[in-house]
Nucleic acid binder design. Structure first.
Lengths: 119, 119
DNA sequence: AATTTATTAAACCAAATGGTTTGACAATTG
DNA sequence: CAATTGTCAAACCATTTGGTTTAATAAATT
């Protein structure tokens, strides 16, 4: 079930790597919108916006409900949790290594004091 | 200072959207490595790996220290925190909207029971 | 039935991505 | 000094991306 999780992460991060797509997600947090509503404020043609929505769908960040000729989109931020977990993991690693670095620097300072400055 | 934060997010998410680059980050959590060490296990030429490292540097996720002919890389996961914060925000929104949806569904069920099934 | 509306599809284009190979160059080793 | 090592730069190539414009399709409106 977690098979090909890496591919999915590719899709999710790729989907998030464009300001228009993050903008779309942001607006979807206010609730469902159809494609016309979504594309209107974006400075690009309707087909371009539609493609961006497809990218978000491929990453499973957005789901679509067709009702007549209207395609309503809503955010599905579940996969964001996955990506967020991945990032948190690295944040932890980073903080640890940062502390190790701090410790090393402290040690160096102490050494310097003990032996005096010798450039 | 938080100016152009969006551009930076573009870079960070784009950097994370490739398995080779995530692999590099993963290995850097074990400590500094030079480019040769980093590229060796990747199934691609050295120049290709080197380019991936550059992408990580552009996103400020990796820093490089040159010592003689060796280029040592180390992870700088600070910007990951930024991205992680961004994601967490959406995770919250998602959970809230999920609860709202749940509430709506509950309401509909209740309505149905009260009025009986009328298709 | 004719028109408008919401969307997709297709064709096209420039630029970016991700890879290769080859050659250059500086630093280390013999 | 010669050979090796670690890295970059350049040239090249195929594919993907992100955008356009112009049809085509299907649903709603008049």
């Amino acid at each position: 079930m977690v098979l090909n999780a890496s591919r999915h992460l590719d899709d999710v991060f790729h989907a998030l790597a464009h300001p228009a797509r993050r903008e779309i997600l942001k607006r979807l947090t206010a609730g469902e919108q159809n494609l016309s509503e979504l594309s209107a404020p974006l400075k690009m043609s309707f087909p371009a916006a539609s493609k961006h929505v497809r990218v978000l769908e491929k990453a499973k960040l957005v789901r679509r409900r067709v009702e007549g000729r209207s395609h309503f989109c809503r955010i599905d931020a579940g996969p964001l949790g996955e990506a967020s977990d991945w990032l948190e993991n690295y944040r932890r690693h980073w903080e640890e290594s940062f502390q190790r670095l701090d410790a090393v620097l402290e040690q160096m300072k102490a050494e310097e004091k003990r032996h005096g400055s010798r450039n």
